[in-house]
């Protein structure tokens, strides 16, 4: 009656739970797209996608930034105000004095690296440190650009306004981001160390690796993608505002989790994170618009969509053993 399958599994083990989990972000994205297509068939066009997804690119980049931090068991509560700060620098210094602008942006990535080092060396809770940093970035953003305005550099608007044949630019960009980060984090040999530092830091240190370095690398990458997010955002909107990125902190965390990531244990998925970000961006903007939700209840609908999508993910994967 019993086969030998239970005691001698095949070499390449197929884990159905893992497979379902991996497919979930894509399924939720598909459902949102179907809903939009049903409500407004015209949105399913080259132009429709360009418009709907343009703002998804900065969100996807911020989500990737958050993902690197989550991969080493930390959380970045400052990424939203950081993106706002980068936006303000981009619309002012980067446009007026490009060299200085580049220097400021590189410096801000350096600050991220320092934060990583500080958090590791002093064994600090990242939530509090980045909470403090969220004030700092917000303050700096106001100092750089006291009132909304500024101007995106010409080249940036050009890039964000590209119109490649057949496939809308945001989709191309999303695929490129997902693939590049996937290869970098999931396929390179140092990527394994980085994720291992989230999974079992003691083991990584015992094997002779520097945990300080893994933290610094993860936070620098978060800073880099935060900068890219701010650039992409300003490329779209063409002008800035100190509060422009405030919603990104929570969107980025939700995107990582929606994409199959977990807060601890180094379990993250770059492809999932990008899909999660796209899903959230579509749900929060386009879907609600097409559903004609009254303005008072727009925020609530946003919350409801988050709950539904995450509950689906949780319910489908809840069959954890004791």
């Amino acid at each position: 009656m019993t086969s030998a399958a239970a005691s001698t599994p095949s070499r390449a083990r197929f884990n159905p739970r893992r497979a379902i989990r991996a497919a979930l972000p894509a399924v939720s994205l598909a459902l949102i797209l179907i809903a939009i297509a049903y409500l407004n068939p015209r949105a399913m066009s080259y132009l429709g996608f360009s418009l709907m997804l343009n703002l998804a690119i900065p969100i996807a980049l911020a989500t990737i930034a958050q993902m690197f931090v989550i991969a080493v068991n930390d959380l970045d509560l400052s990424i939203g105000t950081f993106v706002g700060f980068v936006g303000c620098v981009t619309a002012t210094y980067l446009n007026d004095e490009p060299a200085l602008g580049v220097l400021i942006l590189l410096g801000s990535i350096g600050i991220y690296a320092l934060l990583g080092a500080l958090i590791y060396v002093r064994d600090l809770p990242s939530i509090v440190v980045t909470l403090g940093m969220s004030f700092v970035w917000a303050g700096l953003a106001i100092l750089v650009l006291p009132r909304p305005g500024g101007r995106a550099p010409e080249w940036l608007s050009t890039i964000m306004g590209l119109k490649p044949p057949f496939v809308p630019f945001p989709i191309v960009a999303a695929v490129v981001i997902a693939v590049v980060v996937h290869i970098g984090l999931m396929r390179t040999s140092y990527g394994a160390i980085l994720r291992g530092a989230g999974g079992n830091p003691v083991a990584i240190r015992r094997a002779g690796w520097s945990l300080l370095k893994t933290k610094v690398v993860a936070f620098s990458l978060a800073g880099l993608f935060g900068v890219l997010s701010g650039l992409a955002l300003i490329g779209n909107t063409t002008s800035a505002d100190a509060n422009i990125g405030n919603g990104y902190t929570l969107l980025s965390i939700a995107g990582v989790i929606l994409g199959g990531g977990e807060f601890v244990g180094g379990r993250v998925s770059p492809i999932g994170a990008v899909i999660g970000a796209l899903t959230l961006a579509l749900a929060a903007n386009s879907l609600l618009q097409f559903m004609h939700i009254p303005p008072d209840w727009q925020v609530a609908a946003n919350g409801a969509i988050l709950i539904i999508v995450l509950a689906a993910r949780a319910l489908l994967t809840r069959r954890e053993s004791l």
Binding site: S189, R195, G196, N200, A207, G266
Partner: peptide, 20 residues
């Protein structure tokens, strides 16, 4: 001292800095 989130092969890599 294995990393539970990594594969068997990736855990072997953790031991060997030369596996790049």
């Amino acid at each position: 001292s294995l990393c539970p989130n990594l594969t068997v092969a990736e855990n072997a890599r953790v031991m060997h800095p030369g596996l790049t």
